[in-house]
Amino acid sequence: MERVTERVIQFDLARTTVRELNQYLHHQLPSEPSTGEIPHLAILNPNGQHNIAVGVTVPARIDIQGNAGYFVGGMNKHADIVVHGHAGWSVAENIMSGSLRVKGSASECVAASGHGGLVVIEGDASSRCGISMKGCDIVVGGDVGHMSAFMAQAGSLVICGDAGPNLGDSLYEAVIYIRGGIHGLGTDAQEEPLTAHDIEHLGSLLKRAEFAYSPKEFKRVASARTLYHWHVDAGAKY
């Protein structure tokens, strides 16, 4: 198995621009490490700047040492990114694979339209977490805000805390697992019993996200599929 190199490449964003950092990440990292070692980068003084480590397409370990701004780790493919602080809006937007972990809390639209990979928020995530997710997995250690998993198409959203209003509104085939309370379910979302497959899948996600909860503490929320097709009776409403 490939291991992360011991040599850490440092980027100090107090002295280097985010654009320079991202160009390095896009053009200077090996697409397949010949030595079997994955590059390790440390980003210092992020100070809430936007677009840090967006569009990385190769294996790398990227540690962001502080609070990140909007879109951190957006469109990520293969890289494993850790934000050692809080993050702003749209963390890991459209993530394809790899992982992104936020040690603190994240603002709105976590992993919006994410296709793959794992996104872990150790603290709380704000509203619209997992909006339109298309296959990624999201594990939130704390609470999520309103309209989370809105129109989520595929993948799993695991919430270890509570959910705000309108959870899972207009869900497609993404599945929500929630340990805490639900302020309110959105249109067409319903609670369902956990299946054996859910318990196995959830157990594996919790393990990968490094949370010690038992899958049995969670409820499953999924689409009732009543919005999938136009129903002629609804015509009378208009």
Binding site: N47, G48, Q49, G69, G88
Partner: peptide, 8 residues
């Protein structure tokens, strides 16, 4: 509006 305006 954004954290980066508070970072200093």
């Amino acid at each position: 509006s954004e954290y980066r305006a508070l970072a200093h």
